[in-house]
Simulated assay, not measured.
Amino acid sequence: MTVVGSDCFAETVVTDRLSVRGVAEAVAESAGLGLAPSRGGTVRRGLRRAHVTLRHVRLG
């Protein structure tokens, strides 16, 4: 666990009041990276969420 003590983890992101998107933006900014815009719209996001939900349904 020597990596945790190194400088690459020198900044802490407080996530208590941030959305997932906010956390992603904060981490990307801290790392000097840009985030690509979402490739899907509202319909695609809804279909992806429904697909994941159905994949996790257990029958029996």
Rank of each mutant, 00 (worst) to 15 (best):
R21Q: 05
G60F: 13
T53W: 13
T42A: 14
T15L: 00
V52S: 09
G5Q: 03
R21T: 06
V27G: 02
A24Y: 04
G40P: 00
E29I: 00
M1T: 04
G32F: 11
L35M: 04
T53C: 07
E25S: 03
G41H: 02
R39P: 09
V27S: 13
G34R: 08
A10P: 00
R48M: 11
L18N: 04
A36R: 15
L33P: 00
M1I: 02
L35Q: 05
V27A: 14
T2D: 13
G22S: 04
L35A: 06
A24N: 10
R44W: 09
E25V: 00
E25Q: 05
G60T: 06
C8P: 00
V4Q: 08
A28Y: 06
S6L: 01
A28M: 09
G5N: 10
V3R: 11
T15H: 02
G5P: 00
R48S: 13
G60S: 10
A28K: 08
R44Y: 08
T42S: 14
A50D: 11
E29D: 15
L35E: 01
S30C: 12
G34C: 06
A10L: 12
L47I: 02
L47E: 14
D16T: 07
G5W: 04
S19L: 05
R39S: 09
R17W: 02
T53D: 13
V52I: 14
T2N: 11
V43S: 08
L18W: 04
H51G: 09
A10W: 07
G41Q: 06
V27R: 05
V27L: 10
V43A: 15
G32S: 13
R49S: 08
R49F: 01
G41M: 03
E25W: 00
A36N: 10
V52K: 12
R39V: 05
R17S: 11
T12P: 00
G34H: 04
A26T: 01
V4A: 15
R17G: 03
R21W: 02
G60N: 09
G60H: 07
R39N: 11
T53Q: 12
V3G: 00
V23S: 07
L54V: 14
A24S: 11
E11R: 15
D16N: 11
V27M: 09
T2A: 10
L18Y: 02
G46T: 02
R17E: 06
M1W: 02
T15V: 08
R55Q: 15
S38A: 15
A26P: 01
H56S: 11
R55D: 15
L18Q: 06
D7A: 15
H51Y: 08
R55F: 08
L47D: 12
